[in-house]
Amino acid sequence: MELNAISIGFVVFSIFTLGGGFGVVTTRNLFQGTIWLMVSLFGVAGYFILLSAPFLAAVQILVYIGAIAILIIFAVMLTRSVARIKERYIRILPSFIASLALFLILLLGVTIPIFGAHSPESIPEYVASTRNLGTALVDENGFVVPFLLASVLLTAAMIGAIFIARDENA
C-alpha cells in the first residue's frame, strides 16, 4: 500500500469509522453516542467517496446526519435516556467474547483465501456513474421493481411510525 491521497484518506476514514463505532457502544451518554454514530457514518461516507460512489456518500450524509441523527436525538430526549439508565451493559463479558470471536473469524475469512477467492490485483478503470444508476433504477431490465417496492416501504414506514408514536390523549 503506497502512500497517496487515497491511502491517507483510507486511514483517516478508518479512524473515523472505528473510533465512532467504539464511541457508540461505550459512551454512557446517549446524546454523545448519537454524535459518535454520526462520526462513524461520516467515515463510511468517506469510504464511499474513495470507492468512487459519490452519490451514495451524499445520500449517506443526507439520510443519516440530516434525518436519522435528528430522529435518534428526539427519541433520546423523549425517553429521557440520557439521565435515567444507570447501568450501561448486561452480560458484558460473554458479549465481548462473542463479538471478538466473530471479528477474528471474519478477519480470517477476508485475509486467508480459503474459499478459493483471490483478491483483485487492480481496480477497474471505468465505473458506473450516478447517471447510470439513475437510468438503471427506472429501467425495466434494471431495478424498477425494487425501486417501486422501496418507495412503498418508505411510505408504509412513515405511516406506521406516525401511527405507532401518536399519543392518543393529545
Binding site: 457502544v25 435518534i72 427519541a75 439508565i85 451493559y89 471479528f103 471474519l106 478477519l107
Partner: peptide, 26 residues
C-alpha cells in the same frame, strides 16, 4: 468486519433500546 463486530457487541451488551438501535445502524 471490525465495524460489524462492534455493532454486534453493542446489540448484545447495551441495555438501552436506543443504543441497540444505533448498534444495528453500525
Amino acid at each position: 468486519a471490525a465495524l460489524f463486530s462492534i455493532g454486534v457487541f453493542g446489540v448484545l451488551a447495551r441495555r438501552n433500546a436506543v443504543a441497540i438501535l444505533m448498534s444495528v445502524e453500525l
